[in-house]
Design a protein around this nucleic acid. Structure first.
Length: 489
DNA sequence: CCTGGAGTTGTCCTA
DNA sequence: TTAGGACAACTCCAG
């Protein structure tokens, strides 16, 4: 310990880079600033514990494990390392900064309330130690406080928000990754990633995650692949869960293995010689826009993760229904499109966007279960679980969020299945016990005649459940429940 | 301050 | 078969 501290101090101080949700070398302003300081650079990551922020879910921990290995390897290629610590990040960064003799500390910002409070306090503490601290924006196109309505307020409706946010973007120029990092004279000790147990054991339920490639390299491959194969016709094709026209960038964006500026720049560059793709590009970028908007909402509404954005929903008569919740989680509701989605989630850590809306609508409006239950399940099982996106989207689905779906918009799981999975590619993949049913009844097996069920080898109630609620009845019940929410804020 | 058009993703009934 | 309107009421936001 003494030798290490002495080594850092003797070299005239080092630049400490605290990685969080920016696990990349390219377009990383904190890293660029550290290199520009001319000091030896110590890159560090802290597995946060007990700092008031929400602990990562199981799927997120799986991803983080791989992403840290990737980042560590990339730093190794530059002759550097990634120093790992766990515990309260404030204490860990303070102690690490002192230990290595940091003259400067750099990080990229995050935008949830506990994180902001922690970072603010840490900044003061470091400065009291005479250490220079600087934070940057790596994760958003526009930081939340820069996008304002005409009268200086924060937007609550997406369309005007995105119009204003785009107008602020003048020449989006991602920064290049550094070519080399100067190492400190001596490295501080690092914890062992294997010992963190982020990869599930006993049992290892991550077998279905193998198609993912966490890390900066995987993110770059994903963008290229999407632009080549998914952008053409994205506006329509993105809605088909059996297809492939979606980017799958969300987990990479969540961990900052690629930043929105890079996605913005690359997709514009790709479309430069393809004017026919302008409309599809706009659709794709508006998805980035929703990500921006969700972070904007979270920043301006710190209680978004736990409280209804529209407070009149505080009176909503949510049902306590453990059996229904469990059927939903396991994909045993008897509605094939819902069950397919929930099983895709469980198996792969991902769910198609259209299907996310369908299953959310089902939990909230058919089962009348609190959106927070669904949000918690997604948080644990989604590889792209992101606080801002998850809570804002669940609130939107429930009707209590910003710019939310009107209450009478109750998805019919049969109609949705027929409309967006008409050929049954998606349902047959994830609900294989129904695979031999003809398309006409695939999304409503309870409507099939006995001979049709027999031929398909389906015994309702045995091989596949009957619907746990009747759609028409549930719909009426939901409309009644929502009627009780007269606004009187 | 006032006004009025608009608001991610739908469903169902009727003509 | 298909197209159009009802479904409520509210808030947001620009002019």
């Amino acid at each position: 310990m003494i030798a290490q501290a002495a080594a850092g101090v003797a070299a005239g101080g080092v630049a400490l880079v605290w990685f969080r949700q920016d696990l990349r070398l390219a377009d990383n302003p904190a890293l660029v600033a550290a290199v520009a300081s001319g000091l030896p650079v110590v890159p560090a990551f802290v597995l946060a514990e007990g700092d008031g922020s929400r602990p990562w879910g199981g799927a997120s921990r799986w991803w983080l494990d791989k992403s840290l290995r990737s980042l560590g390897a990339s730093l190794g290629d530059l002759g550097s390392r990634l120093v790992l610590r766990r515990g309260d990040p404030t204490l860990q960064i303070l102690s690490l900064a002192r230990q290595v003799g940091a003259a400067k500390v750099f990080w990229n910002r995050i935008y949830d309330a506990p994180g902001i409070a922690r970072d603010t306090a840490l900044k003061s503490a470091l400065r009291e130690d005479g250490i220079e601290v600087q934070s940057f924006n790596a994760g958003l196109l526009d930081e939340p406080w820069t996008v304002k309505t005409g009268v200086g307020g924060d937007f609550k409706v997406f369309t005007p928000y995105w119009r204003a946010a785009r107008a602020l973007l003048k020449g989006v120029k991602p920064q290049a990754a550094p070519n080399a990092l100067v190492s400190p004279v001596a490295w501080p000790e690092s914890e062992d990633l294997d010992a963190w147990g982020l990869h599930p054991r006993a049992p290892d339920w991550s077998g279905g995650f193998e198609a993912w490639r966490p890390g900066e390299g995987g993110a770059e491959t994903r963008v290229d692949h999407f632009l080549e194969t998914g952008l053409d016709g994205y506006g329509v094709r993105r809605d088909l869960p059996g297809g492939e026209a979606f980017s799958r960038l969300s987990p990479h964006l969540h961990w900052g293995e690629i930043g929105p500026r890079q996605v913005w720049r690359q997709s514009h560059a790709y479309v430069e010689n393809r004017p026919d793709l302008a409309s599809d590009l706009g659709k794709f970028l508006s998805e980035l826009g929703w990500r921006e908007f969700n972070h904007h909402l979270l920043f301006h509404n710190p209680t978004l993760p736990t409280e209804n954005f529209r407070r009149n929903f505080d009176r909503f008569p949510w049902r306590n229904d453990p059996a229904g919740l469990e059927a939903w989680r396991r994909g045993r509701t008897g509605y094939p499109i819902v069950d397919a989605g929930m099983r895709e989630l469980w198996a792969t850590g991902f769910m198609h966007n259209r299907v996310r809306m369908v299953v959310a609508s089902f939990l909230i409006k058919h089962l009348l279960i609190d959106w927070r239950e669904g949000e918690a399940w997604f948080w644990d099982t989604l590889l792209d679980a992101d606080l801002a996106n998850n809570v804002a989207n669940w609130q939107w689905s429930a009707g209590c969020g910003a710019d939310a779906a009107p209450f009478f918009r109750i998805f019919n799981p049969v109609t949705q299945g027929e409309k967006f999975d008409g050929e049954g590619v998606y349902v047959r993949r994830w609900v294989p016990e129904l695979a031999r049913l003809p398309n006409a009844v695939l999304h409503s097996p309870w409507m099939a005649s006995e001979p049709v069920l027999d031929r398909a080898g389906v015994r309702l109630g045995l091989d596949y459940p009957r619907p746990i609620v009747d759609h028409a009845m549930a719909r009426q019940q939901a409309l009644e429940a929502f009627k009780g929410l007269k606004v009187l804020d």
